[in-house]
Computed example of a mutant assay.
Amino acid sequence: MTITTGVAIYLTLWWVVLFAVLPLGTVTHAEAGIDKRDGGDPGAPVDPKLKRKFLTTTWVSAVIFVILWAVLHFGLIQLPPIADPYGAG
């Protein structure tokens, strides 16, 4: 795995994990019993804690990436070669 491929895989993994982590631990205005008279969405989180979720996403993604790298590096799973779409080879 080249550095470019590793960075691309990590960033993709980071975004997937972020969308899995975002709904965890959120309390909406409706659940908290706060009236949104100004036209706000009652399903909006009261305190989204984004900094904490970004940090959680970063370390969870790093752990998953290290496991993926180790599996590929030590050959625990062999990926098939990608076929040449032009038939040369």
Results as ranks from 00 to 15, higher is better:
D38S: 12
L50F: 07
D38V: 09
F19Y: 01
V27W: 07
G43E: 08
R52G: 05
L13Q: 10
L50E: 01
I67F: 01
A88Q: 15
Y10H: 10
L76W: 15
H73C: 02
S61Q: 07
G6E: 13
A30S: 10
K36N: 15
F54C: 02
F54Y: 07
S61D: 11
L55H: 00
T5R: 15
W59F: 13
T57N: 10
W59H: 05
A88T: 12
G43S: 05
T26C: 03
F65Y: 03
A62K: 00
G75T: 02
A83D: 15
G43I: 00
I3Q: 05
L13F: 06
V17M: 05
L76G: 14
A83E: 13
T12W: 10
V66D: 00
A32Q: 13
I77C: 08
I82L: 15
G43M: 08
L24H: 05
A8P: 02
P45I: 06
F19V: 00
R37P: 04
D41F: 00
S61C: 07
T58R: 10
L79R: 13
A88N: 15
T26L: 14
Y86D: 08
Y10K: 03
V21I: 06
D35I: 13
G75L: 09
A62T: 09
A8E: 13
A88D: 14
K49C: 00
G6N: 13
A44Y: 02
D35L: 12
F19S: 03
V66A: 05
G43H: 07
Q78V: 14
D38M: 08
L68G: 00
D38L: 14
L18T: 06
V17T: 10
I64L: 10
I67T: 01
A88C: 05
V21D: 00
G89L: 09
W59R: 01
L24E: 02
Y10T: 03
V63W: 06
G25N: 07
D41I: 04
K51S: 09
Y86E: 09
L68V: 05
F19W: 09
W14N: 03
L68N: 04
W14C: 07
Y86K: 11
E31I: 11
L24R: 04
P85Y: 12
L24N: 02
W69G: 00
G87V: 06
V71G: 02
W14P: 03
L76S: 04
A83W: 11
P45T: 03
T2Q: 07
G6C: 08
G75V: 09
P81M: 11
R52H: 04
